[in-house]
Computed example of a mutant assay.
Amino acid sequence: MKKTKILMAAALLGIATFVAIAADHIDAPAVAGGTSDITDFYAFRGENTSNIVFVASVQGLLSPGNTAGASFDENVMLEINIDTDGDNVEDLVIQAIPRDGQMYFFGPTAPSQTGLNTNFSSTSTTNAGVVDITKYGESAIVKETGGMKFFAGPRDDPFFFDFNQYTAIINGEAGGFNSPGDDTFSGSNVLSVVVEVPKSMIGGSGTINTWVESKRKQ
């Protein structure tokens, strides 16, 4: 399990008025390149302003040409955690679980237990949906169920970062970033799950903390 690094600081702002972004593409050797490796997490107001969109991506730096080697791991669940009362403990979760070419979503629902260990919520929630995982070269498959929308599949990496210039700055070889700089992740893909949820399903005071975890079946 890994939480993305800057999310909690970003999530202290009101979800209705900002885009929360956390990114972590290049990890330590022990976890880099794994099927549970989280790259990005985004939370933002939907085009329908009564909705919130959550986007979680895994398996960064995928080559678009390596279509056979990029797939969701059926032993890994992505869990979006939502804290509605400011105590930094999840009050609601949305779980995404791949099976046989489809992504199953459960929630938002109250978790049976909080923290690192998690039980599947499939037996305890009426909020659920399933969508076919979009394959490389296909148009995006989006499914709408119960006021929620779902997507899962490969996407062009949306995160812009000039890693070489960053390294030069850290090493004292440069004084700042160039404009616009070089996009280190240009031409690479990630595997993304997207769920759009009515705010009425989230509740709370209007401000939430949110983070994502990847959890491997034990």
Rank of each mutant, 00 (worst) to 15 (best):
A96Q: 01
N164I: 14
T126V: 12
S179F: 08
A128V: 01
N127I: 12
F150G: 15
D85W: 05
T67F: 00
G69F: 10
T114C: 13
Q95S: 08
F120Y: 11
F105Y: 03
V131N: 08
D156R: 12
G115M: 10
D73E: 00
G137M: 01
P180V: 05
T114D: 03
N75P: 03
S121M: 13
G101W: 02
G176C: 00
N81M: 06
D162C: 03
Y136W: 12
V76A: 09
P108K: 13
A174Y: 05
G115D: 09
F161I: 02
G147R: 04
Y104C: 03
G107L: 00
I170H: 06
I97V: 15
E79G: 04
G137C: 02
Q113E: 04
T126N: 08
M103V: 09
D132I: 08
M148H: 01
G176Q: 07
N164C: 12
F163K: 03
L78C: 01
M148W: 06
P158N: 00
I80K: 11
G176S: 11
G176A: 14
G146F: 11
G101N: 04
S71G: 04
V130C: 06
K135W: 04
N117E: 12
S124P: 03
E74T: 15
G175C: 07
F72M: 05
E90N: 09
D100I: 11
G175Q: 12
T126W: 10
N119M: 04
Y104T: 04
A152M: 12
V142L: 14
I133T: 10
F151D: 02
V130F: 07
I80A: 11
A70I: 13
A110V: 14
F105P: 00
Q95Y: 01
M77D: 13
K143Q: 15
T126F: 10
D83Q: 10
T67N: 03
V93C: 10
T84F: 01
A110W: 07
L116H: 05
L116M: 05
S71A: 10
T118E: 04
Y104H: 07
T145P: 07
G129T: 00
T145A: 15
N127P: 13
G172I: 00
S139K: 04
Q113R: 11
L92Q: 07
P108W: 07
T84R: 12
F105I: 01
D162Y: 01
T114G: 14
D85I: 02
K149H: 01
D87H: 06
D157Q: 09
G86V: 07
V142S: 14
Q113G: 14
G101M: 01
G172W: 08
N164S: 14
A168T: 15
S179H: 12
R99V: 15
T145K: 05
I141H: 06
A152T: 06
